[in-house]
Design a protein around this nucleic acid. Structure first.
Lengths: 244, 244
DNA sequence: CGTCCCGTTGAAATCGTTCAAGTGAGGTGG
DNA sequence: CCACCTCACTTGAACGATTTCAACGGGACG
């Protein structure tokens, strides 16, 4: 049984052949540890490796000329990072650790080999990337067309669901792991306004806060105010051919 | 020489083997024509095919509960559509023709076959998808963190650059092909405000308008006010192994 | 014990929206 | 060929959501 959370996620969805399990295990061979707040890759850095996040939480972001930051995504165990390496030689985004982390780097040539030798696995990776793409379109729609309250609510729900895919025991009460400023940079709001929105969600009984934790008190209502859809729950790789 | 614009785009970037050219040509075998404003696929429709856009222009969007619309991307000849089919059985977005179009549908099982038989081609498709992903993060950052003027300017530049990849003769003067309402739905603004921003860009001498066309009069300044980066120009697939 | 970071709160300012009205070009039927 | 209709675009004025500015509290950490 391969031990990376990435392997766990893949094998949750398709049955792997021994060859595929080997290939998957090789992705986890090298490991790199980084401290909280360490930068794995900066915008415009030379880019030739991809990574799988094995432990911890990360984020990717871009900085604008005026110093403003847009957080593009939060990254959880089992996610593949730095996929732009497949199309670009310089990173379009910065990758930073939000907690102490363990990542497994692998050269993009490994990806090329995987396409040739374990195509089904490559297809599965591409499919998971599509799920990430769809989650990003959800964020785009949220930022472009929903209220501040809805965006904050959606982010809370998304983080909870992502944390839960890594640990099924996580219920309605969890440690967010990010600051209000980071929530703002992810949702296109200011930290000040995020604070007001959290307070409002609390006053309306949708969430509780305390001890660095958030509790979803009325999830149904939260989902409704957020326009939220859990994209990770609906993933279906059943079309992948069951090769020998 | 394969005749789809998709084939042209791929072979611009890597040298194809005869097998790969065959596989590419097979993608273009079936064709479907749609009229302007026709819907190829609605949100939540059953999803088992992908498409390559051969001619014309399309967009993808989502509708929110309150009827608001967020346009996720504009689609140009050579782009692959409905890639969420690789991870989901129902479409997360609506695909609509902005002009009369020709699309080439192919089942996702064809994609699976391609992974196994022409892996390098599959890798190239995944790489181009990454470019699309990066363009989407640019839009996310624009909507989340830049002014209305910057967003409109960025959209004008992006559309011009995308049109140009299909027709190198296109210079600084081109037909936009979308309404101000659509610009608004793509940038997270109202049609009214888009109008004011266009006027402002015009008054400041950055663009000219007339006869349904836009002219970029001061491209350098426009790029600066938009924070724009041309992602399609920097694509590099050189890492793909040059197989026999 | 001081300092820094994060969170909190109020008041004023601003950017973008909403509402309302009007213009103009293109298409269609009489 | 004209009357009519629709759709996109245009413009002004009022409104409102979010930002900005400013100040303060509290906990963690050296």
């Amino acid at each position: 049984m391969p031990d990376t959370s990435f392997a766990a996620r893949i094998s949750d969805m398709i049955v792997l052949t021994p060859d595929e399990q080997d290939a998957l295990a090789r992705l986890g061979e090298r490991q790199r540890r980084l401290r909280r707040n360490a930068v794995l890759l900066s915008e415009n850095d030379r880019l030739s490796e991809l990574f799988v996040l094995k432990e911890g939480m990360m984020m990717s972001y871009v900085l604008l000329d005026d110093g403003r930051r847009q957080i593009l995504r939060f990254i959880f165990p089992g996610d593949v990072l730095a996929t732009p390496a497949l199309a670009y030689t310089r990173s379009p985004e910065t990758l930073m650790a939000l907690t102490d982390i363990v990542v497994c780097p692998f050269d993009r040539s490994v990806m090329a080999t995987m396409f040739a030798t374990t195509p089904r696995l490559a297809a599965a990776i591409m499919a998971l990337d599509q799920a990430e793409r769809v989650a990003m379109t959800d964020r785009l729609a949220a930022i472009g067309r929903t209220s501040a309250k809805a965006r904050v609510a959606a982010l809370l729900l998304e983080i909870r669901d992502r944390l839960r895919t890594g640990d099924r025991r996580i219920g309605n009460c969890f440690v967010l792991g990010i600051t209000q400023e980071e929530i703002g940079d992810a949702t296109g709001l200011t930290a000040v306004h995020v604070n007001r929105m959290l307070r409002q969600l609390e006053e309306e009984g949708m969430i509780g806060r305390g001890g660095g934790r958030v509790t979803l008190l009325n999830e149904a209502r939260l989902v409704r105010t957020a326009n939220y859809i859990d994209r990770h729950a609906a993933i279906d790789l059943g079309w992948l051919p069951a090769l020998a």
